[in-house]
Design a protein around this nucleic acid. Structure first.
Lengths: 241, 241
DNA sequence: CGCCATTTTGAAGGTTTTCAATGTCAGTGG
DNA sequence: CCACTGACATTGAAAACCTTCAAAATGGCG
């Protein structure tokens, strides 16, 4: 059967998933090639500028997002202006959550960003037709939950030094997983963002990094590139001081 | 069609879901009455004694659990013995996670406990046949994720006093949700467990509670029952001191 | 009553934050 | 080219908060 053109959507809408750059890492990777044009129709792509907000904490949630290109940070803001960053997202990560409540966090672009946007009802209807996709989404969400539990434990129980060491090691293994070199690592975020991610202040982050440098456990080039002495860093995490 | 007795399982296995006490709050609540005998066959029920471990952090995960009766706490243990409690579970809560990795936390019984135990493969096969159930599990997991994100923000950015105030208010609304009186609340856990849940020490928890008492913001009977001055507690959370 | 676990309180100490100042670096315009 | 600017990072000193160690109080239970 030849794909019929929708009155509402242009042709691009039907084929965009066929050559999606992020498909290999996205929740939709389990969709068969021949079903892609159909799936393609329920979402639209949108570009966002650097530092623009994709949505704000508290807004009504009607959409589910899949990051195609660029980076996004999601964070909560408190009444007094304090910030807690929940995550730095990469292509293939989804956010906005599959539920019909209000957004519990703000999503902001780091650099230029492209997202796939799904209306809840359309996605919901599609999930009814594709159990494989639903199960995959469940697996990914479960995985996110496990990671967030790790972070509760890290922020709740580790010293500033250990949080930073753990952060560096995490970035390293994350890079390894997606095929980048695991050492040195590059810190794409500012010290302030690191602090807001780890539940610390900039000053503490800066001081602890300085200590690690002076102890030769890490080496830095221009503050962004970090060479890790991994064995020492790993022993740092398990020692009881 | 009359339900046929399985050779392997006893008759109880097929009917236990029909009069399950926790069904109304469980992930399986969306299963139609006539499908229950079939669903019933893929799980077995098990009882656990007070303070026994259902599984340990690091063990291989082959099972998915649904709490039927009693309370369970799930927590992470660090090398130095520090503990971070991730949650206090109530009937209808599931745990053990739907994935085939190792357990990332320990599950321990608080009092006598009854659980439904699902083998991953069996549950997985059943999910293939019931998209409604899969979607429901996805919604519940998404909800858990949102709650865990809240906790990252609370532990990362709130003072001891605010964490405790927030904790009390959460218990209150949780009680309201399941139809119990929302004020006074009852604290089913020890001060130590509260501390391990909030990323604090017992002493800090005790001191902050004492302060709240002396300021008349809460009143206590025998250290377990707490009368909350809710308006004041809520303003506590939003003030900037 | 006496025991034991839990909770509370006290005092000292340590870690992290706060406030303030300085340093670094890339981009801009004289 | 170099000084100026503004954002980001580092460092210092003092203060605040939370923890640690220690002791006393409370409360349930044999």
């Amino acid at each position: 059967m030849e794909p019929r053109r929708s009155e509402k959507n242009n042709n691009y809408s039907e084929i965009k998933c066929l050559h999606c750059l992020a498909k290999a890492h996205s929740f939709c990777k389990c969709i068969a090639q021949d079903k892609l044009p159909d799936f393609s129709k329920i979402s639209s792509q949108k570009k966002f500028k650097d530092r623009s907000y994709i949505f704000l904490q508290g807004e009504k949630n009607d959409y589910f997002y899949n990051l195609v290109q660029g980076n996004v940070k999601i964070f909560k803001v408190f009444e007094d202006g304090r910030i807690q960053i929940l995550g730095f997202l990469y292509p293939g990560d989804f956010f906005g959550l599959y539920s019909s409540k209000n957004f519990s966090y703000t999503a902001e672009c780091i650099g230029e960003v492209t997202c796939c946007i799904f209306n809840h009802k359309d996605l919901d209807a599609y999930l009814d037709k594709n159990i494989e996709l639903t199960k995959h989404l469940l697996h990914r969400t479960t995985n996110e939950l496990t990671l967030m539990q790790d972070r509760v434990a890290i922020i709740g129980r580790l010293s500033a030094r250990k949080r930073i060491v753990n952060f560096f090691l995490n970035i390293s293994s994350q890079r390894k997983r997606i095929g980048w070199q695991e050492n040195p690592i590059v810190l794409p975020m500012t010290r302030n963002e690191m602090a807001d991610y780890l539940g610390l202040t900039v000053e503490t982050v800066s001081r602890e990094i300085s200590k690690l440098k002076s102890e030769q456990i890490i080496k830095m080039i221009d503050g962004k590139q970090v060479f890790l002495n991994k064995p020492v860093l790993e022993s740092e995490l398990s020692n009881n001081s």
